[in-house]
């Protein structure tokens, strides 16, 4: 973006859209296990996700942009996760939170857990941890914002 002398901002339509989109990512109210407690902590006053424009946890997938898969995805839950993802409108993004969602975690050798939610839905940002701290999830959100704006981390 370039700032003109007369206080005029010139940009492309695309950049403006990306800027607006990345600063109002509304997550879905969707918690599966203990990671959801940390997700709630992110939304609460100490970590405060609203500094990044994501404080509005929508109760309907039709109104949300981001799915934070927070917690163990069991095989029985996997078709439901897929259906919720399908009901979200484009553009939609997914953050995989916690090692259970990444590759099964402590349930890796179990009988009932999906070994990675990326076998069910496409994932944009992976946040490892058991559970990840609120700071880690905020870092994941900022990474997603950079990804939406087309910036690189390095």
């Amino acid at each position: 973006m370039k700032t003109g002398d007369a206080g005029i901002l010139t940009t492309t339509m695309e950049k403006a859209m990306e800027w607006g989109r990345s600063n109002s990512i509304w997550p879905l109210t969707f918690g599966l296990a203990c990671c959801a407690i940390e997700m709630m902590a992110v939304q609460a006053s100490k970590a405060d996700i609203s500094r990044f424009g994501s404080e509005v946890f929508r109760n309907s997938p039709r109104q949300s942009d981001l799915m934070i898969v927070s917690g163990t995805v069991t095989k029985k839950m996997a078709p439901r996760v897929r259906r919720l993802y399908d009901e979200m409108p484009y553009p939609k993004y997914v953050i995989a939170m916690g090692v259970c969602v990444l590759q099964g975690g402590p349930y890796n050798q179990g009988y009932s857990v999906v070994l990675g939610v990326d076998r069910v839905i496409p994932v944009d940002v992976y946040v490892p941890g058991c559970p990840p701290t609120p700071e880690a999830l905020i870092n994941g959100l900022i990474t997603l914002q950079k990804k939406i704006r087309g910036e690189t981390d390095r």
């Binding site: 095989k75 996997a78 439901r80 996760v81 897929r82 009988y111």
Partner: peptide
């Protein structure tokens, strides 16, 4: 004596009923 090497998958039909199968292509 449960056989963990045979991975089972769960799928859901339109009315929300679950069914299990051994076919990975029948997955999500």
């Amino acid at each position: 004596n449960y056989d963990l090497s045979k991975v089972q998958f769960v799928n859901m039909d339109e009315s929300g009923n679950d069914y299990a199968s051994f076919d990975p292509g029948d997955g999500w």
